[in-house]
Simulated assay, not measured.
Amino acid sequence: MMRLTGLLAASLLLLACSKNDPPPDPVRPVLSMEVKAEDQETLGRFAGTIQARYESNLGFRVPGRIAHRTVDVGAEVEKGAVLAVLDPTDQQNQLRAVQGDLARVQAQFINAQASARRQQALFNRGVGAQAQLDAAQTDLKTTQASLDQAQASVNQAKDQLNYTRLRTDHGGIVTAWNAEAGQVVSAGQQVVTLARPDIKEAVIDLPAGLAERLPPDVVFLVAGQLDPSVNTTATVREIEPQAQSATRTRRARLTLADTPAAFLLGTAISVTLSSAIPPRIELPLSALQQIDGKTRIWLLDTQSRTVQPREVTVLSRDADSVVLSGGVKPGERIIVAGVNSLQPGQTVKIDEDSPR
């Protein structure tokens, strides 16, 4: 009986002691990240396209009405290919007219030659006058000049007829048409744009302020919008000296370090500008905790899964991130979500989605 009473007293004593002990801190789920030092500053990301460095705006050398086009936009053509044809009626009529003039002058030239030969023969026999011989030779020279002029007119008319067919002087890809079949165009009017696909470049529009203060070591990373894994670097070839009045942007043309096969003319690209900076540490704004006017972060011990606070100094901040001037080193892991519910030495559970 006494033994039973002693066991009961001991049990009651242990129960009383357990009620006085504080409950253990709960294991809280958190998100963490590894601290990394950044040595590149992103200046912006801009959309652009792949274009040909060399483009030709072609037009007819004679006026007329476009009879038909032989190719469409996107067609690849070789040197000498016919792109469009004018109605050749006027040029054909002009050619017939000058050919008639040429035939008339040729007949006159034949008569002048015969006359000059006759007068020369009479003069050689001593029965012809010098004045008649001189007149015949002068007429022959005049007729020869008229013949040359008529022949030149025929050649010119043939050229005018040939100019009714718009041909390429180099191979390329048709990128734009500025006239349609049935439209009357003047000589030299821009009709079609032909791009040479052998040399391509990236074209983007930069804000005027950024274009004026680009650092000399700026790096352009050019990537396809549909497939960012297709990328290359580029350098500035030229920037337009004046900003466009409507958008206040300046067009920049970039020379590609290499040209991936996927970079076809017209491909939509994304160009990221970055510049080298002294190494700095940038963290998400959610990693900071303000306590008694001091700023701190929570360090994670990956072995014990416990956390400890550490004060840091903020160099700058924006809506989503902060840049620290000290207090944490690259390679350390910090808590980036759930910092307001932590206690020093508390055990945490790292979320499966947390970066390792």
Score class of each variant (00 low, 15 high):
residue 169 D to M: 08
residue 193 T to N: 08
residue 199 I to P: 00
residue 93 N to M: 10
residue 327 G to I: 08
residue 290 Q to A: 11
residue 129 A to G: 15
residue 90 D to L: 14
residue 132 Q to G: 07
residue 344 P to C: 12
residue 16 A to D: 14
residue 229 S to C: 02
residue 93 N to K: 15
residue 261 A to M: 12
residue 136 A to T: 00
residue 278 P to F: 12
residue 59 G to N: 10
residue 106 Q to G: 02
residue 112 A to Q: 00
residue 275 S to K: 12
residue 345 G to V: 12
residue 63 P to E: 10
residue 37 A to Q: 12
residue 3 R to F: 13
residue 15 L to M: 15
residue 157 A to N: 00
residue 319 A to H: 05
residue 349 K to I: 05
residue 191 V to R: 01
residue 283 L to K: 09
residue 269 I to Q: 07
residue 243 A to P: 04
residue 266 G to N: 11
residue 348 V to W: 03
residue 299 L to Y: 04
residue 66 I to G: 01
residue 343 Q to I: 11
residue 326 G to E: 15
residue 236 V to Q: 07
residue 181 A to V: 05
residue 46 F to W: 11
residue 216 P to C: 03
residue 267 T to P: 07
residue 83 L to D: 05
residue 41 E to G: 02
residue 147 L to V: 00
residue 346 Q to K: 10
residue 274 S to R: 12
residue 257 A to V: 08
residue 188 G to E: 08
residue 20 N to E: 11
residue 238 E to Q: 15
residue 69 R to P: 00
residue 44 G to I: 09
residue 185 V to H: 06
residue 17 C to Q: 13
residue 168 T to E: 07
residue 291 I to W: 02
residue 24 P to H: 05
residue 31 L to A: 03
residue 181 A to D: 12
residue 226 L to D: 15
residue 249 T to L: 05
residue 326 G to P: 03
